[in-house]
């Protein structure tokens, strides 16, 4: 039994120029407790793929099984319930700008039916878990990118999820902050046993945190392996290309230093 399974997912978009295939025949499995990465360049279909998992996007065909239950067959009401077990964090954090940090974290608790006051009290715990209880009364516009993503992580923890989807969660952050956020994700993976699915274009992210990784190119899954194996013996051109880009990046950084 796989914890999460994508089964022959396809997604087509209809545009003025005809049909565009964003995802073709994507299948993979994620085990409980692991950190699974999906890497690809922009336009590879990563975001579409992760959004198909909690049905922010409806796949054209194929299905997603979460704990052996098809997400795609669920009614709107059942889907909402299931979504509480599948948290999501985003590249641009997507915090409510008119709510304080504490009230942002309280939001999923309110959505689940808690009273505002209870929700706020509980929200403190999660702010402490991500290390920024001192920012509780600040507003998102007063925070740095790294702090905003911590708030988003606290907010996602508040719904007590079993699976966490990260859509380019560190792409708007500098390298040092990225490392801190990844360390936090690894912590919550260990501490709360939350399975994590990470979408990224950066090999460094995969290398730093993932157990296994799948390479996506042109809407197709090219290669899937443990991170160690993929780095040591990339089999496909797509994987080699991504590794090469990373080497270039590293050389550039060294040159700058």
């Amino acid at each position: 039994m796989a914890f999460l399974k994508a089964d022959r997912l396809c997604k087509e978009f209809i545009s003025d120029d005809g049909k565009i295939s964003a995802l073709s025949d994507i299948s993979f499995e994620v085990e409980k407790g692991e950190i699974f990465g999906i890497i690809g360049l922009s336009g590879a279909g990563k975001s579409t793929l992760v959004r198909c998992i909690n049905r922010l996007e409806e796949p054209t065909s194929g299905c997603v099984l979460f704990k052996d239950r098809s997400i795609n067959g669920l009614s709107a009401k059942e889907l909402r319930k299931e979504r509480r077990k599948i948290g999501m964090i985003f590249q641009h954090f997507n915090l409510l700008m008119q709510r304080s940090v504490l009230d942002n974290v309280a939001l999923p608790l309110e959505i689940a039916g808690a009273k505002r006051k209870e929700a706020r009290e509980k929200a403190w715990e999660y702010l402490e878990a991500v290390g920024i209880p001192d920012k509780a009364n600040a507003f998102p516009s007063q925070l740095s990118g790294g702090q905003k993503q911590r708030v988003a992580i606290a907010r996602v923890l508040a719904s007590d999820p079993e699976l966490l989807l990260c859509d380019e969660a560190t792409s708007a952050l500098d390298p040092q902050t990225t490392r801190q956020i990844l360390a936090l994700l690894r912590d919550i993976n260990k501490k709360y046993g939350i399975t994590i699915l990470i979408i990224t274009h950066a090999m460094t992210v995969v290398q730093e945190i993932c157990d296994r990784v799948a390479v996506l190119e042109g809407g197709r899954l090219m290669e899937m392996n443990t991170v160690k194996e993929l780095f040591a013996h990339p089999r496909t051109k797509a994987a080699k290309r991504l590794l090469l880009i990373q080497e270039d990046d590293n050389e550039e950084k060294e040159a700058v230093l």
Binding site: L56, M88, N94, L96, L107, E110, I111
Partner: peptide, 23 residues
């Protein structure tokens, strides 16, 4: 993006209107 975040939390349309859109 903020609306999607609320949807990903399992918010109903009514909750999104009251807690996200109007706020």
């Amino acid at each position: 993006g903020v609306i999607e975040a609320a949807q990903s939390m399992g918010a109903t349309d009514g909750q999104i209107i009251v807690k996200v859109l109007l706020g």
